[in-house]
Design a protein around this nucleic acid. Structure first.
Lengths: 142, 142
DNA sequence: TCAACAGATTAGAACAATTCTAAAATGAAT
DNA sequence: ATTCATTTTAGAATTGTTCTAATCTGTTGA
């Protein structure tokens, strides 16, 4: 067995464990998608992941990609980043951080959470609690 | 002439002046929509403004509502607030401020700009400049 | 005042992103 | 192996938005 193959196998087992831990049945498709998401932090859309899966020879329906992304998000494996109407990203980095967003290219760039500080947020309206604070720094080429 | 009618007329003239000043031809529809947007600060969607116009007896096509909202935004009369895929708001308050967003109700609540402070934003990627910093404080009922 | 034309509006088609549906397939537990 | 709940799937449906080509309206200048 070659090294790369062995590594792949170990990653797969890992993935299956993580799915189980998240309370998700480790199906073929979920494991494949989790594998594609990989360990490096990335910003993906449903469409782009669907294309990637197809390219990797894992035929998954677009509906399943959407289902899976939402389940992963609920399970805390992903974070959804709202940018603009009709443009939704999923971020494999669920830790504390924010984003630059380039209006022209549509690209996201991370801002480490320890860099940015938001201060002076008033108490939330009665009967509600703060869930998360999202900062999007919109940038333009010049 | 009744008081309310006089007030209405004055507002209309005002509106027309503001449109001209923004370099927009003061058409029936633009004046009507600008009038509906009124002077109090509000958060609206294209759909909601379209419904309002219909209810007020001003038949405007949805396409015109979209066109007008975008033109007003470009002219600096409105600010667009991106909340989530498939949910875009226009804010009649173009001054410095941010928002609470209630995940459950979809409502926006203003946070005065003088309250909130964002610090420690790193220099933007090479070749780009910061256009705007958007803060969305996501809240949930409890 | 009105003719002419650029610019604006319109209904409806087209489009993009996402969700729904009902049927077929699969994983887990006997 | 059989069963059953869960998952996947293709394709239809929905939603929000933009496009298109025809029609209409402000504005300008004769």
């Amino acid at each position: 067995m070659r090294k790369s193959s062995k590594r792949k196998t170990m990653r797969l087992l890992d993935t299956i464990e993580r799915l189980r831990a998240a309370g998700l049945r480790p199906t073929r498709q979920r494991a494949a998608l989790a594998g594609l998401l990989g360990s490096e932090h990335r910003h993906i859309s449903a469409e782009s992941l669907h294309r990637e899966a197809a390219k990797a020879g894992v035929p998954v329906s677009l509906a399943t990609v959407y289902n899976t992304l939402h389940q992963f998000t609920e399970a805390g494996l992903l974070r959804e980043v709202a940018i603009s109407a009709g443009r939704s990203y999923f971020d494999t980095n669920t830790g504390d951080h924010q984003h630059f967003y380039c209006e022209e290219s549509g690209e996201l760039v991370d801002i480490p959470g320890n860099a940015i500080v938001v201060d002076g947020i008033p108490g939330p309206p009665k009967g509600t609690a703060i869930d998360r604070v999202d900062v999007v720094v919109r940038i333009r080429r010049n």
